[in-house]
């Protein structure tokens, strides 16, 4: 569970063309400079990395239970999905 955060941050960093060290938990998608397609690509990479299905539709952000407000909220949501898979 503890290695989820760095892997998610690494994926977001790759999409945002940043170094992972530049990304703190409070950072928002907008502050990382990710547009909706960048976010969709990041979520694809997250699904591949953790072998999960992420319920996310850019037409209704906030719906489906996957909170993309900040890096911390994305990490928490991925942790929840990974935990759900193990259960």
């Amino acid at each position: 569970m503890q290695d989820i955060a760095p892997r998610v941050i690494e994926i977001l960093a790759t999409q945002a063309l940043l170094d992972p060290s530049e990304i703190g938990p409070e950072a928002t998608i907008e502050s990382l400079g990710l547009d909706s397609l960048g976010l969709v690509e990041a979520i694809f990479a997250i699904e591949e990395a953790f072998d999960i299905q992420v319920p996310f539709n850019p037409n209704e952000p906030g719906q489906g239970g996957f909170d993309t407000t900040s890096v911390a909220s994305i990490v928490a949501a991925v942790q929840g999905l990974v935990a759900g898979k193990a259960a």
């Binding site: 979520i43 996310f56 539709n57 850019p58 037409n59 209704e60 719906q63």
Partner: peptide
């Protein structure tokens, strides 16, 4: 599906509840 622009439940152009 992978582009995440498809609605799973219906087409609602110009509606506040539209989802793809």
């Amino acid at each position: 599906e992978s582009l995440r622009v498809l609605s799973p439940d219906g087409c609602r152009p110009f509606d506040a509840r539209r989802n793809g």
